[in-house]
Amino acid sequence: MSSTARDRIFARLHAARTTVSPYVPQGGTWQAPMLDKAQRIELLKKRMETVRSEVHVLPEAEWPAKLAELLKAREATTLTYGHDAWFGGTLRSKIKGKGMPKLVPYGENVEAFRDELFGIDVGITSTLGGIAENGTLIVWPTPQEPRLLSLVPTVHVALLKADTIYSTLAEAMREMRWAENMPTNALLISGPSKTADIEMTLAFGVHGPKELIVLVLE
């Protein structure tokens, strides 16, 4: 059934070609402004905070201490992460001891890990970059850092290297050569999960994370 449906649809689409010679206006006129590095960090922070993300800009060496402080304040009991992520070793050596959450690497397929994952407090991921114009993180999950790390836990912590913040989405797509390298799932993440479906009242954490914490590493 499906192949004949396809044939009939394409027959109509091709036939439309002969009755209409369409006018196509010129595009390519809009571009968001390009910014220098300090401006990019500042704008990203401002945009993300507007939608209630928590953004801390700090020297790279200080992130484990900052993370420990944030976890303590939230009394997190479990934290999941990718064992082989670039920060995995540091995480294991620095986030331990009294008051620190139990580290649970996302080391199995979701079928086996799902039930445990839905009960975990914090997920931490790396990012491939950020976009200043709209305050967005570029997250491409990998075998080392699966997709659900940034979605299921109640708090999502993202590590963003300041050098990888682009001015615009168009620039990020060009520089990272998206067209040649699209991964299984490319995500742009701009804040905690939110909704305004009831009386247009904004509320956070409806299905996904209630909090998004971004550590911008300089």
Partner: peptide
């Protein structure tokens, strides 16, 4: 909004070695 919380770009099903999707 300038952008939604999530822009979800899906290009393929789970590949070998990937843990979810």
């Amino acid at each position: 909004q300038l952008v939604t919380t999530y822009v979800n770009c899906i290009t393929s099903p789970r590949k070998d070695g990937e843990r979810d999707g």
